[in-house]
Design a protein around this nucleic acid. Structure first.
Lengths: 218, 218
DNA sequence: ACCTGAACACCGTTCAAGT
DNA sequence: ACCTGAACACCGTTCAAGT
C-alpha cells in the first residue's frame, strides 16, 4: 500500500505552496498545511527551506520566473509597444495568482527573477533611446505597475456603488456621489462593478508610458 | 499605590496600537502587547474592538483622519498645485508611520476617512475642469500615490548598488549594471542610497499629474 | 458595564531521536 | 542524508466568572 513517495525538494515545496495559496488564499498557507499537501510532517520542510519567510521569498521567485518565461520572446516595433506587452503579459500571470501581489509587496529580500525582469525592461528602454538615468526614473515611476499590478487603496465602486449607502455618509462625500451619479447616468445598470480593472490598469499604464515617451523625445 | 487608571476606550486602544507600530514595527503589534501598553489584560480589549482586524481597520481610519486634518486648509491656484500639495502632505504623514502603507494596502474594509480623502481629491479635480469620468480614471491611475506612497517592488540601489555583487549575477543583469555604472560615473560616491525616495516619488507623481492635465485640456 | 483568569485551538520553530 | 514525534514559546480568541 505504501506508494513510493516522491522525495521532497525545495522546488516541490514551493510549487505546493503556490497551489495552496491559489486554492485557499495565502492565509491558508501554513507550514503544517504545506507538509500535509506533500504527505510529510511540518518539520521535514525545514530540510529544504530555511523557514516560512524563505518559502514566501521562494514563491515570489518562482512566479517571477514564470513571468520571465512568458515575456521572453516578446518583440515589438517600439520600446513602448514592447514594454506594454510585457507588462500586460505579467499582469495576466497575476490574474491566476490573485494573492501574489500582496506577497510581492510584502517581501524585503531581492528576488533574482524580479531583478532579471527589471533588467530586461531597462534594456528595452535603453535600446529605445532612453538614457540610463531616465530608465532609472521610469522604473520608480512605474513601481509595481512594471510587474503588472496596481495598488488600489480605494475602489469608488466599493464605496458608493451599492444602493444601500447611508444618507449621512452620502452627505459627507458629495463629490463621489456626484461622480457616481454621472457614471450611472451615462451607463445605467452599472452601479455594481462599474470599475473595469483591466481598462483602468491600461489607462494608468498608458498615462505613464506616454509621459515617459514624451520625456524621451524632449 | 494603585493609580486611578484611565478607562479603556476604542480611541485609546487605537492610539496605543499606532504607538507600538511606530516604536517596534507592525509585527510587534499583538493583542497581548497592546493590552500591556494600556496596563490591562488582552481580553479586556475585546470590549472596545471587535478583534485584531478591527484594530487594523481602526488604525487606518485614525491615520487617514490625521491626513485629512493636515490637508484640510490647503488652497492653491490650480487643481494640479492643490492636488500635488495635498498628496505630498499626506506623504509626510506616512514618513512618520513607515509601517502604515503595508497596513493600508492589506485592508479590505473601506475606511470612512480614506473615502473622504478621495472625495476631496475628486472635488478638487472637478472644480479644476475634470469631467467626473476623467476624475474617476485619475483616481485609479494615481492608485496609492493619491495617498502619498508608491509601491516599489524593486530598488535598483538595493540590487546592484553594493560593491559586492557577485560576478555571475552581474553577467545576468547587464542592463542594470550599465545603468548603475552610468549613474556612478555621473555622481561618484553615490553607490549606496543613490535613489532619492522623495525625488523619485515627485517624479512619478508629476508624470501622472501632467498626463492628467493634458487629458483635461484635450 | 467593564474587566479578567484560565483555557482552547492554532501558529512557527527547535531538538533529540530515529532510519 | 533525510525524516519525524514531542515539545516550546508564542498567537488570537472564547467562556465563565468576577467587580
Amino acid at each position: 500500500m505504501s506508494a513510493p513517495r516522491t522525495p521532497l525538494s525545495r522546488d516541490r515545496v514551493l510549487r505546493a505552496a503556490i497551489a495552496i495559496a491559489d486554492a485557499d488564499g495565502v492565509e491558508a498557507l501554513t507550514m503544517r498545511r504545506l507538509a500535509r499537501a506533500l504527505d510529510a510532517e511540518a518539520m521535514s520542510l525545514y530540510h529544504h527551506v530555511k523557514n516560512k519567510d524563505d518559502v514566501l521569498d521562494g514563491v515570489v521567485d518562482v512566479i517571477a520566473g514564470e513571468i520571465n518565461a512568458a515575456v521572453e520572446h516578446i518583440t515589438a516595433p517600439t520600446w513602448k509597444a514592447a514594454a506594454r506587452e510585457r507588462i500586460l503579459t505579467a499582469r495576466s500571470i497575476f490574474l491566476r495568482h490573485p494573492w501574489a501581489p500582496a506577497v510581492f509587496a510584502g517581501r524585503t529580500a531581492v528576488s533574482f527573477e524580479v531583478v532579471r525582469y527589471h533588467d530586461r525592461l531597462v534594456g528595452l528602454m535603453h535600446d529605445g533611446g532612453f538614457s540610463y538615468d531616465l530608465a532609472h526614473h521610469a522604473l520608480h515611476a512605474l513601481g509595481s505597475r512594471a510587474l503588472g499590478f496596481a495598488q488600489e487603496l480605494f475602489d469608488p465602486g466599493d464605496a458608493g456603488g451599492n444602493a444601500d449607502v447611508p444618507p449621512e455618509l452620502a452627505a459627507a462625500v458629495p463629490n463621489l456621489v456626484g461622480m457616481l451619479a454621472e457614471v450611472a447616468h451615462d451607463d445605467p445598470g452599472s452601479t455594481l462593478g462599474w470599475c473595469d480593472d483591466q481598462f483602468e490598469f491600461e489607462f494608468g499604464l498608458d498615462l505613464v508610458l506616454d509621459g515617459l515617451e514624451r520625456l524621451r523625445t524632449a
